Amino acid sequence: MSSRTRRVAMSGLALVGTVAVLAGCASAPSDSTSSKKSDFLPCMVSDAGGFDDKSFNQLGFEGLKDASADIGAEPKTAESKDATVYDSNIQQLVNQNCNLIVTVGFNLAASTKKQAAANPDTDFAIIDDNSINAKNVKPITFDTSQAAFLAGYAAASYSKSGTVGTFGGMQIPTVTIFMDGFADGVEYYNEQKKKDVKVVGWDVKSQKGSFTGGFEAGTQAKSVAQSLLDQDADVILPVGGPIYQSAAEAIKDADNGSVLIGADSDLYEADPRYKDIAFTSIEKGMKPATKDVVEQAAKGDFSKTPYVGTLENDGVGIAPFHDYESKVDSGLQGELDKIKAGIIDGSVKVDTEASVK
Protein backbone atom coordinates (compact mmCIF):
# COMPACT_ATOMS: atom_id res chain seq x y z
CA MET A 1 0.00 0.00 0.00
CA SER A 2 1.12 3.53 -0.66
CA SER A 3 2.92 5.39 2.08
CA ARG A 4 0.88 8.44 1.36
CA THR A 5 -1.37 9.33 4.27
CA ARG A 6 -4.83 10.35 3.29
CA ARG A 7 -8.01 10.38 5.28
CA VAL A 8 -10.66 7.74 4.91
CA ALA A 9 -13.62 9.33 3.24
CA MET A 10 -17.10 9.04 4.53
CA SER A 11 -18.84 10.23 1.43
CA GLY A 12 -19.26 9.05 -2.08
CA LEU A 13 -20.80 10.04 -5.23
CA ALA A 14 -22.22 10.25 -7.01
CA LEU A 15 -26.51 7.51 -8.02
CA VAL A 16 -32.84 3.87 -10.99
CA GLY A 17 -36.62 4.10 -12.33
CA THR A 18 -38.57 6.39 -14.59
CA VAL A 19 -41.12 8.96 -13.57
CA ALA A 20 -42.68 12.14 -14.84
CA VAL A 21 -40.88 14.75 -12.77
CA LEU A 22 -40.51 18.44 -12.35
CA ALA A 23 -38.61 19.85 -15.30
CA GLY A 24 -36.02 22.13 -13.82
CA CYS A 25 -37.65 25.48 -13.46
CA ALA A 26 -41.37 25.87 -13.27
CA SER A 27 -44.03 23.19 -12.99
CA ALA A 28 -44.93 21.58 -9.69
CA PRO A 29 -43.33 18.32 -8.52
CA SER A 30 -45.16 15.17 -9.56
CA ASP A 31 -46.76 12.30 -7.69
CA SER A 32 -45.19 8.89 -8.24
CA THR A 33 -47.47 6.16 -6.87
CA SER A 34 -51.16 5.40 -6.82
CA SER A 35 -52.76 4.61 -3.47
CA LYS A 36 -52.01 6.63 -0.38
CA LYS A 37 -52.50 4.84 2.93
CA SER A 38 -50.17 6.83 5.14
CA ASP A 39 -50.20 10.45 6.24
CA PHE A 40 -46.39 10.48 6.03
CA LEU A 41 -45.22 12.28 2.90
CA PRO A 42 -41.70 11.42 1.65
CA CYS A 43 -40.20 13.55 -1.13
CA MET A 44 -37.03 13.80 -3.20
CA VAL A 45 -35.08 16.35 -5.25
CA SER A 46 -32.65 15.06 -7.89
CA ASP A 47 -29.38 16.48 -9.07
CA ALA A 48 -28.72 17.07 -12.78
CA GLY A 49 -28.89 13.86 -14.77
CA GLY A 50 -32.45 13.04 -13.77
CA PHE A 51 -34.17 10.12 -12.15
CA ASP A 52 -33.57 7.93 -15.21
CA ASP A 53 -29.77 8.32 -15.22
CA LYS A 54 -29.24 4.61 -14.43
CA SER A 55 -26.93 5.85 -11.71
CA PHE A 56 -27.09 7.76 -8.43
CA ASN A 57 -30.29 9.77 -8.97
CA GLN A 58 -32.15 6.70 -10.13
CA LEU A 59 -30.91 4.51 -7.28
CA GLY A 60 -32.05 7.06 -4.72
CA PHE A 61 -35.42 7.35 -6.44
CA GLU A 62 -35.91 3.58 -6.45
CA GLY A 63 -35.23 3.52 -2.72
CA LEU A 64 -37.86 6.24 -2.26
CA LYS A 65 -40.37 4.29 -4.35
CA ASP A 66 -39.78 1.02 -2.50
CA ALA A 67 -40.12 2.65 0.92
CA SER A 68 -43.26 4.51 -0.15
CA ALA A 69 -44.84 1.28 -1.38
CA ASP A 70 -44.04 -0.45 1.91
CA ILE A 71 -45.48 2.29 4.11
CA GLY A 72 -48.41 3.07 1.82
CA ALA A 73 -47.35 6.60 1.00
CA GLU A 74 -47.51 8.62 -2.20
CA PRO A 75 -44.14 10.37 -2.68
CA LYS A 76 -43.52 13.61 -4.51
CA THR A 77 -40.44 14.29 -6.59
CA ALA A 78 -38.70 17.23 -8.22
CA GLU A 79 -36.08 16.87 -10.94
CA SER A 80 -33.32 19.46 -11.16
CA LYS A 81 -32.09 20.20 -14.66
CA ASP A 82 -29.31 22.36 -13.27
CA ALA A 83 -28.09 24.07 -10.09
CA THR A 84 -30.31 27.14 -10.56
CA VAL A 85 -33.41 25.27 -9.42
CA TYR A 86 -32.17 23.43 -6.32
CA ASP A 87 -33.64 25.99 -3.91
CA SER A 88 -36.94 26.37 -5.74
CA ASN A 89 -37.41 22.62 -6.08
CA ILE A 90 -36.87 22.07 -2.37
CA GLN A 91 -39.11 25.01 -1.50
CA GLN A 92 -41.94 23.65 -3.63
CA LEU A 93 -41.78 20.36 -1.76
CA VAL A 94 -41.69 22.17 1.58
CA ASN A 95 -44.81 24.06 0.47
CA GLN A 96 -46.53 20.73 -0.17
CA ASN A 97 -45.92 19.74 3.47
CA CYS A 98 -43.43 16.97 2.84
CA ASN A 99 -42.39 15.30 6.09
CA LEU A 100 -39.02 14.15 4.74
CA ILE A 101 -37.17 15.62 1.77
CA VAL A 102 -34.27 13.57 0.39
CA THR A 103 -31.82 15.56 -1.72
CA VAL A 104 -29.62 13.55 -4.06
CA GLY A 105 -26.02 14.59 -4.23
CA PHE A 106 -23.17 16.66 -2.85
CA ASN A 107 -24.11 19.54 -5.16
CA LEU A 108 -27.35 20.12 -3.24
CA ALA A 109 -25.60 20.62 0.10
CA ALA A 110 -25.79 24.42 0.21
CA SER A 111 -29.47 24.48 -0.75
CA THR A 112 -30.30 21.67 1.68
CA LYS A 113 -28.55 23.46 4.53
CA LYS A 114 -30.35 26.71 3.75
CA GLN A 115 -33.78 25.12 3.48
CA ALA A 116 -33.30 22.94 6.57
CA ALA A 117 -32.44 26.03 8.62
CA ALA A 118 -35.47 27.88 7.27
CA ASN A 119 -37.81 24.92 7.83
CA PRO A 120 -36.87 23.30 11.17
CA ASP A 121 -40.10 21.29 11.30
CA THR A 122 -39.26 19.48 8.05
CA ASP A 123 -36.79 16.59 8.11
CA PHE A 124 -34.15 16.26 5.39
CA ALA A 125 -31.75 13.56 4.28
CA ILE A 126 -28.94 14.21 1.83
CA ILE A 127 -27.15 11.57 -0.20
CA ASP A 128 -23.38 11.90 -0.66
CA ASP A 129 -22.72 14.73 1.77
CA ASN A 130 -21.97 14.91 5.47
CA SER A 131 -21.09 18.59 5.81
CA ILE A 132 -24.38 19.70 7.41
CA ASN A 133 -24.69 19.60 11.18
CA ALA A 134 -28.36 20.16 11.90
CA LYS A 135 -30.88 18.24 13.97
CA ASN A 136 -33.21 17.87 10.98
CA VAL A 137 -30.63 16.70 8.40
CA LYS A 138 -29.44 13.08 8.09
CA PRO A 139 -26.39 12.40 5.89
CA ILE A 140 -26.43 9.25 3.74
CA THR A 141 -22.81 8.64 2.75
CA PHE A 142 -20.64 5.90 1.33
CA ASP A 143 -16.95 5.09 1.72
CA THR A 144 -16.76 4.31 -1.98
CA SER A 145 -12.96 4.28 -2.00
CA GLN A 146 -13.07 0.83 -0.39
CA ALA A 147 -14.98 -0.72 -3.29
CA ALA A 148 -13.06 1.32 -5.87
CA PHE A 149 -9.83 -0.10 -4.41
CA LEU A 150 -11.06 -3.61 -5.26
CA ALA A 151 -12.06 -2.50 -8.76
CA GLY A 152 -8.66 -0.90 -9.33
CA TYR A 153 -6.91 -4.10 -8.30
CA ALA A 154 -9.15 -6.12 -10.64
CA ALA A 155 -8.57 -3.66 -13.50
CA ALA A 156 -4.80 -3.91 -13.12
CA SER A 157 -5.01 -7.69 -13.06
CA TYR A 158 -7.10 -7.79 -16.24
CA SER A 159 -5.32 -5.12 -18.28
CA LYS A 160 -3.46 -6.40 -21.32
CA SER A 161 -1.84 -3.06 -22.20
CA GLY A 162 -0.54 -2.33 -18.72
CA THR A 163 -2.52 0.93 -18.64
CA VAL A 164 -5.92 1.66 -17.12
CA GLY A 165 -7.79 4.95 -16.91
CA THR A 166 -10.39 6.92 -15.04
CA PHE A 167 -12.09 10.28 -15.50
CA GLY A 168 -14.82 12.21 -13.75
CA GLY A 169 -17.67 14.62 -14.26
CA MET A 170 -17.06 17.41 -11.75
CA GLN A 171 -14.01 17.48 -9.50
CA ILE A 172 -15.82 17.10 -6.20
CA PRO A 173 -15.16 14.66 -3.33
CA THR A 174 -18.00 12.32 -4.26
CA VAL A 175 -16.32 11.80 -7.64
CA THR A 176 -12.64 11.82 -6.70
CA ILE A 177 -13.23 9.30 -3.90
CA PHE A 178 -13.82 6.70 -6.66
CA MET A 179 -10.72 7.81 -8.55
CA ASP A 180 -8.50 7.78 -5.45
CA GLY A 181 -9.60 4.29 -4.46
CA PHE A 182 -9.26 3.00 -8.02
CA ALA A 183 -5.72 4.36 -8.42
CA ASP A 184 -4.66 3.03 -5.02
CA GLY A 185 -6.04 -0.40 -5.88
CA VAL A 186 -3.87 -0.40 -9.00
CA GLU A 187 -0.86 0.61 -6.92
CA TYR A 188 -1.57 -2.15 -4.40
CA TYR A 189 -1.68 -4.66 -7.27
CA ASN A 190 1.68 -3.40 -8.51
CA GLU A 191 3.20 -3.75 -5.05
CA GLN A 192 1.83 -7.25 -4.53
CA LYS A 193 2.67 -8.54 -8.02
CA LYS A 194 5.82 -6.54 -8.74
CA LYS A 195 4.16 -5.02 -11.80
CA ASP A 196 3.97 -1.51 -13.23
CA VAL A 197 0.41 -0.97 -14.42
CA LYS A 198 -0.13 2.75 -15.10
CA VAL A 199 -3.17 4.89 -14.33
CA VAL A 200 -4.05 7.69 -16.75
CA GLY A 201 -6.68 10.37 -16.17
CA TRP A 202 -5.98 10.84 -12.47
CA ASP A 203 -2.93 11.52 -10.31
CA VAL A 204 -3.52 10.84 -6.63
CA LYS A 205 -0.54 12.84 -5.38
CA SER A 206 -1.40 16.06 -7.22
CA GLN A 207 -5.18 15.45 -7.16
CA LYS A 208 -5.27 16.45 -10.81
CA GLY A 209 -6.84 14.64 -13.69
CA SER A 210 -9.42 14.49 -16.46
CA PHE A 211 -12.94 15.88 -15.94
CA THR A 212 -15.79 16.78 -18.25
CA GLY A 213 -17.08 19.67 -16.11
CA GLY A 214 -20.54 18.18 -15.63
CA PHE A 215 -22.60 15.01 -15.47
CA GLU A 216 -24.05 14.99 -18.97
CA ALA A 217 -23.32 12.44 -21.65
CA GLY A 218 -22.09 14.00 -24.89
CA THR A 219 -19.15 14.92 -27.04
CA GLN A 220 -17.03 16.23 -24.16
CA ALA A 221 -17.34 13.00 -22.16
CA LYS A 222 -16.64 10.91 -25.25
CA SER A 223 -13.60 13.04 -26.08
CA VAL A 224 -12.15 12.59 -22.59
CA ALA A 225 -12.73 8.84 -22.76
CA GLN A 226 -11.08 8.75 -26.18
CA SER A 227 -8.04 10.55 -24.78
CA LEU A 228 -7.59 7.72 -22.27
CA LEU A 229 -7.95 5.10 -24.99
CA ASP A 230 -5.34 6.99 -27.02
CA GLN A 231 -2.98 6.55 -24.06
CA ASP A 232 -3.50 2.76 -24.32
CA ALA A 233 -5.92 2.42 -21.41
CA ASP A 234 -7.89 -0.79 -21.93
CA VAL A 235 -9.98 -0.58 -18.73
CA ILE A 236 -11.83 2.70 -18.12
CA LEU A 237 -13.76 3.94 -15.06
CA PRO A 238 -15.97 6.98 -15.77
CA VAL A 239 -17.38 8.59 -12.60
CA GLY A 240 -20.33 10.91 -12.95
CA GLY A 241 -23.77 9.59 -13.79
CA PRO A 242 -24.57 9.40 -17.53
CA ILE A 243 -21.02 10.18 -18.72
CA TYR A 244 -20.45 6.40 -18.76
CA GLN A 245 -22.66 6.27 -21.87
CA SER A 246 -20.21 8.40 -23.82
CA ALA A 247 -17.26 6.37 -22.56
CA ALA A 248 -19.05 3.23 -23.72
CA GLU A 249 -19.53 4.74 -27.18
CA ALA A 250 -15.82 5.55 -27.38
CA ILE A 251 -14.92 2.00 -26.35
CA LYS A 252 -17.32 0.46 -28.85
CA ASP A 253 -16.00 2.70 -31.62
CA ALA A 254 -12.43 1.68 -30.78
CA ASP A 255 -13.42 -2.01 -30.92
CA ASN A 256 -10.05 -3.02 -29.51
CA GLY A 257 -11.05 -5.17 -26.54
CA SER A 258 -11.20 -2.32 -24.01
CA VAL A 259 -13.75 -2.62 -21.21
CA LEU A 260 -15.78 -0.38 -18.93
CA ILE A 261 -16.20 -0.23 -15.15
CA GLY A 262 -19.56 1.12 -13.99
CA ALA A 263 -20.07 3.48 -11.06
CA ASP A 264 -22.85 3.39 -8.45
CA SER A 265 -24.97 0.56 -9.90
CA ASP A 266 -24.21 -2.71 -11.69
CA LEU A 267 -23.84 -1.45 -15.26
CA TYR A 268 -24.41 -4.94 -16.71
CA GLU A 269 -27.89 -5.05 -15.16
CA ALA A 270 -28.72 -1.33 -15.22
CA ASP A 271 -27.94 -0.69 -18.89
CA PRO A 272 -27.80 -3.92 -20.92
CA ARG A 273 -26.86 -1.96 -24.03
CA TYR A 274 -23.30 -2.10 -22.76
CA LYS A 275 -23.23 -5.53 -21.13
CA ASP A 276 -20.67 -6.81 -23.66
CA ILE A 277 -18.07 -4.31 -22.40
CA ALA A 278 -19.15 -4.19 -18.73
CA PHE A 279 -16.18 -5.62 -16.82
CA THR A 280 -17.51 -4.92 -13.31
CA SER A 281 -19.02 -1.99 -11.40
CA ILE A 282 -18.38 -0.12 -8.17
CA GLU A 283 -21.69 -0.31 -6.35
CA LYS A 284 -23.14 2.03 -3.76
CA GLY A 285 -26.12 0.76 -1.79
CA MET A 286 -28.06 3.96 -2.31
CA LYS A 287 -31.34 2.19 -2.94
CA PRO A 288 -31.48 0.18 0.33
CA ALA A 289 -29.96 3.04 2.34
CA THR A 290 -32.58 5.51 1.09
CA LYS A 291 -35.36 3.00 1.64
CA ASP A 292 -34.25 2.42 5.22
CA VAL A 293 -33.97 6.13 6.04
CA VAL A 294 -37.45 6.86 4.65
CA GLU A 295 -39.03 3.94 6.50
CA GLN A 296 -37.36 4.86 9.78
CA ALA A 297 -38.55 8.45 9.44
CA ALA A 298 -42.08 7.25 8.73
CA LYS A 299 -41.95 5.31 12.00
CA GLY A 300 -40.91 8.44 13.87
CA ASP A 301 -37.31 7.25 14.24
CA PHE A 302 -35.61 9.99 12.24
CA SER A 303 -32.20 11.05 13.57
CA LYS A 304 -29.32 13.14 12.30
CA THR A 305 -26.87 10.26 12.88
CA PRO A 306 -25.09 9.69 9.56
CA TYR A 307 -25.47 6.47 7.61
CA VAL A 308 -22.08 5.39 6.23
CA GLY A 309 -21.96 2.56 3.69
CA THR A 310 -18.83 0.41 3.87
CA LEU A 311 -17.64 -3.00 2.73
CA GLU A 312 -18.34 -4.28 6.22
CA ASN A 313 -22.05 -3.40 6.18
CA ASP A 314 -22.44 -4.11 2.44
CA GLY A 315 -23.10 -0.44 1.78
CA VAL A 316 -20.50 -0.56 -1.01
CA GLY A 317 -19.03 -3.37 -3.10
CA ILE A 318 -18.19 -4.48 -6.60
CA ALA A 319 -20.48 -6.27 -9.04
CA PRO A 320 -19.79 -9.71 -10.51
CA PHE A 321 -17.58 -9.98 -13.59
CA HIS A 322 -20.55 -11.43 -15.48
CA ASP A 323 -19.41 -12.26 -19.05
CA TYR A 324 -15.78 -11.70 -18.05
CA GLU A 325 -15.85 -14.31 -15.28
CA SER A 326 -13.97 -16.81 -17.44
CA LYS A 327 -11.58 -14.16 -18.75
CA VAL A 328 -10.08 -12.93 -15.49
CA ASP A 329 -7.21 -14.66 -13.72
CA SER A 330 -8.43 -17.79 -11.96
CA GLY A 331 -7.07 -16.59 -8.64
CA LEU A 332 -8.44 -13.04 -8.85
CA GLN A 333 -11.66 -13.56 -6.89
CA GLY A 334 -9.78 -15.20 -4.04
CA GLU A 335 -7.35 -12.27 -3.95
CA LEU A 336 -10.22 -9.78 -3.90
CA ASP A 337 -11.93 -11.67 -1.07
CA LYS A 338 -8.71 -11.53 0.93
CA ILE A 339 -8.23 -7.82 0.25
CA LYS A 340 -11.84 -7.12 1.23
CA ALA A 341 -11.32 -8.91 4.54
CA GLY A 342 -8.12 -6.91 5.06
CA ILE A 343 -9.89 -3.61 4.42
CA ILE A 344 -12.60 -4.57 6.90
CA ASP A 345 -10.15 -5.62 9.64
CA GLY A 346 -7.86 -2.67 8.96
CA SER A 347 -4.81 -4.61 7.80
CA VAL A 348 -5.22 -3.11 4.30
CA LYS A 349 -5.45 0.67 4.52
CA VAL A 350 -7.65 2.61 2.12
CA ASP A 351 -7.26 6.37 2.44
CA THR A 352 -8.37 9.28 0.29
CA GLU A 353 -8.10 13.03 -0.03
CA ALA A 354 -11.85 13.09 -0.67
CA SER A 355 -12.78 13.08 3.00
CA VAL A 356 -15.67 15.38 3.96
CA LYS A 357 -15.66 15.66 7.75
Score class of each variant (00 low, 15 high):
Ser11Met: 10
Ala14Asn: 14
Val16Ala: 12
Gly17Ser: 15
Gly17His: 14
Thr18Ala: 10
Val19Trp: 02
Ala20Cys: 05
Ala20Glu: 13
Ala20Val: 15
Ala20Asp: 12
Leu22Cys: 04
Leu22Ile: 06
Gly24Asn: 09
Gly24Ser: 11
Cys25Glu: 12
Cys25Asn: 14
Cys25Ala: 12
Cys25Arg: 07
Ala26Asn: 15
Ser27His: 08
Ala28Met: 08
Ala28His: 03
Ala28Glu: 08
Ala28Gln: 06
Pro29Glu: 00
Ser30Thr: 15
Ser30Val: 07
Ser32Tyr: 07
Thr33Glu: 08
Thr33Ile: 09
Ser34Asn: 07
Ser34Asp: 12
Ser34Tyr: 06
Ser35Ala: 11
Ser35Phe: 10
Ser35Arg: 09
Lys36Gln: 15
Lys36Asn: 15
Asp39Leu: 12
Leu41Tyr: 04
Leu41Asp: 01
Pro42Gly: 05
Cys43Trp: 07
Met44Ala: 15
Val45Gln: 00
Val45Met: 14
Ala48Phe: 12
Ala48Cys: 13
Gly49Met: 04
Gly49Ser: 07
Gly49Ala: 05
Gly49Arg: 01
Gly49Glu: 04
Gly50Gln: 00
Gly50Pro: 02
Gly50Leu: 03
Asp52Arg: 04
Asp52Glu: 09
Asp53Gly: 00
Lys54His: 12
Lys54Trp: 06
Phe56His: 07
Phe56Glu: 01
Gln58Thr: 04
Leu59Cys: 05
Leu59Tyr: 03
Gly60Glu: 02
Leu64Asn: 11
Lys65Tyr: 10
Lys65Gln: 13
Asp66Thr: 14
Asp66Asn: 15
Ser68Glu: 13
Ser68Thr: 12
Asp70Glu: 15
Asp70Gln: 12
Ala73Gly: 06
Ala73Leu: 10
Ala73Gln: 02
Pro75Arg: 05
